[in-house]
Nucleic acid binder design. Structure first.
Lengths: 361, 361
DNA sequence: ACTATCACAGCACACGTGTGCCGTAACACG
DNA sequence: CGTGTTACGGCACACGTGTGCTGTGATAGT
């Protein structure tokens, strides 16, 4: 059916070994350039395509990255990962790797089931976006294929992590507002207390405020966590007045994430405030921000970049010789943690403040 | 390294053939139930996992679906496909198939390159979401793996298509507004003239209006096509007043797609109109609709369902024996075209009209 | 002329699994 | 006891590719 290297060999009165060496550019033994050309040409003519199964059966390398997907609910609120998928896909492709999707996994057990695929499909490495579950179970797997966690992951990871560094983006956001003339800024979130990510971003906000000698108030509502987007919008809308009361003459708000910022949009409209005329709003993530009215200035979550980096890291780790891997294990080197700096994307929800003093409304 | 069926056989003084038959439940020749149990148990003990490469090298079946992705721009406006990916993934998984991602493909040539993967990875079938390119090139491929187009595809397809039937959703939208008490409705789009999808949806709108004996005006601005989301929002915002002028006392608007509806949100705000108090707005697609303020009533694009159906169809086609495939080709049967009826998702952008007559503002 | 060297070609096996066919015990029946 | 039948186990090969090792012809060196 399909054309094999044996077909090519037979047609040229060669052995398939020679054809294989030529196709893979094995220069261990010299083969006449003329033969090389003839093989190349007939391969082209016959439309030869190598069989990946046979190849990786022999070599042990699959040139395939496994990707474990979570959160498969049909109407899932989470359109978060598409950009990351694009990044992972691009990063893998640029290295000649393909992507095998494992999942969607609804439960922890299914994720473990996904890990078995590493063995079954002989995937070279695994990338898991946004994994928050128990990490001990993950490492119990006997396979030596590296597992890279991408974005938003548990911090106690024993596995390499590629994640966002929000601080540069938040500093850029504060700088941006300061340059527009804002002097009194509000931090706003409706997340649960003890969310490390919130703490980190708040600290970055505080630091930037201090450096710029601005007035800044942090309003963390400390509500539920792990909300879906729609619910976050609601809660934000409801609690924003309370937050604003802590700094009534604020002219700009920086929100922990995008749904929170949309809630602020709604709350502002409720009060008759116009964005950005009366209030500048900066969100996070850049999922829906571009289609909002007005389009929203955000700190990007850099999902594409994180995904690409994660793919590259996973491939790099899988290609380091096993000896060095064992060595690094025995020495117990510090876990790899690549951070991608967040960037500010300026759109139309930020402008120079109209009122320079006095409380709003 | 990895445990094989030979290891199991050796441990039990059997031949690997017997083990293989037991694992695959080949009942062609009867094997003592006792041996069966012992093999099963040792397979479990040793943690045996079949090697997919070896298996599909032998059987020719890969149990893998190829998925060709388009539109990989880093900050792509198009978060369209995530739900469909979830659907495809779920559908494939439920049949025991995995997903191999091919792409992202930037150009037509790369899509063709993706098709070569069908041969290289011996993928059983290919699913291509939203493919609008030339279809002759696609079919020139010699491989007999079926190619299923999913959603939004060119209509002259010679390949099986799974797509949305927008009409039921639009009828439901009109019904919904009518039941709320609306009598004068506007259809609004800013797409290019000759967009068949627009025509189809407009026709459904007109039909529903007629059946309900309502007053309906269709405002198609006939602007550019293939816009990104942000630009569509802008154009919609700018041109909506012009549309509204054609039916000044309209109390409800149905928009061709979601960005257009967001533009209407903005245009309404520009005029001081409140949604849904002064104007009910219905969008399409359900990508960002849930996070809008107010959350938007939409006709769903059913991406998840379309993806799932496409995966199931692709698998079904790949499993039909080659003879029947050839037969159907020679007889030139009608191309398969599965349509998923659109559904209305009611949120908060629709309500009973406050003013029953007279122009707005 | 004999041999060492070189530049290649190809045999044979391996990777892990699936399967047609034959061998072989056990058993029953005449 | 001989033979047919049944119920199973295993040999051998296939899938397509990669590679160590050996074979071979030509050329050069002594």
């Amino acid at each position: 059916m399909a054309v094999t290297i044996r077909d090519i060999a037979k047609r040229l009165n060669l052995s398939h070994s020679t054809v294989s060496r030529i196709i893979n550019n094995r220069d261990s033994s010299f083969i006449s350039t003329e033969t090389r050309a003839r093989v190349r040409q007939t391969a082209e003519e016959l439309g030869y395509r190598p069989n990946y199964h046979a190849r990786s059966l022999q070599t042990g390398k699959a040139c395939v990255l496994g990707l474990v997907l979570e959160k498969p609910e049909p109407n899932s609120e989470d359109r978060f990962w598409q950009s990351m998928l694009n990044g992972i896909s691009t990063g893998a492709r640029s290295r000649g790797y393909d992507l095998l999707i494992i999942g969607p996994a609804r439960e922890q057990s299914e994720i473990e089931r996904g890990l078995e695929y590493v063995t079954e499909h002989r995937v070279d490495a695994l990338v898991i976006p946004g994994y928050l579950g128990s990490l001990d179970q993950l490492s119990s797997q006997s396979s030596d294929a590296p597992i890279v966690l991408a974005g938003n992951s548990a911090s106690n990871a024993r596995h390499p992590v590629v994640d966002l560094d929000a601080a540069p983006g938040i500093e850029a956001a504060v700088d941006h507002l300061a340059e527009l003339g804002h002097r009194r800024l509000l931090w706003f979130d409706v997340e649960r207390e003890g969310n490390g990510s919130v703490d980190y971003r708040r600290a970055a906000f505080r630091k930037a405020i201090t450096r710029r000698a601005l007035k800044g108030v942090e309003a963390s509502m400390n509500l539920e966590s792990r909300l879906n987007e729609e619910r976050t919008v609601e809660l934000s809308r409801r609690h924003f007045p309370e937050a604003l009361a802590r700094l009534p003459d604020a002219t700009g708000v920086i929100c922990y994430n995008e749904p929170t910022a949309f809630g602020v949009y709604a709350a502002a409209a409720d009060r008759g405030l116009r964005v950005p005329r009366d209030l500048s709003v900066i969100g996070f993530d850049d999922i829906h921000a571009a289609v909002a009215a007005p389009s929203m200035t955000v700190v990007s979550h850099m999902l594409y970049a994180i995904g690409m980096k994660a793919a590259e890291l996973a491939i790099a780790l899988s290609e380091t010789p096993a000896t060095s891997v064992k060595k690094s294990k025995s020495v117990a080197t510090a876990p790899i943690r690549e951070l991608i700096p967040a960037e500010l994307i300026v759109r139309q929800s930020t402008a120079a403040p109209q009122r320079t003093a006095g409380p709003i409304v």
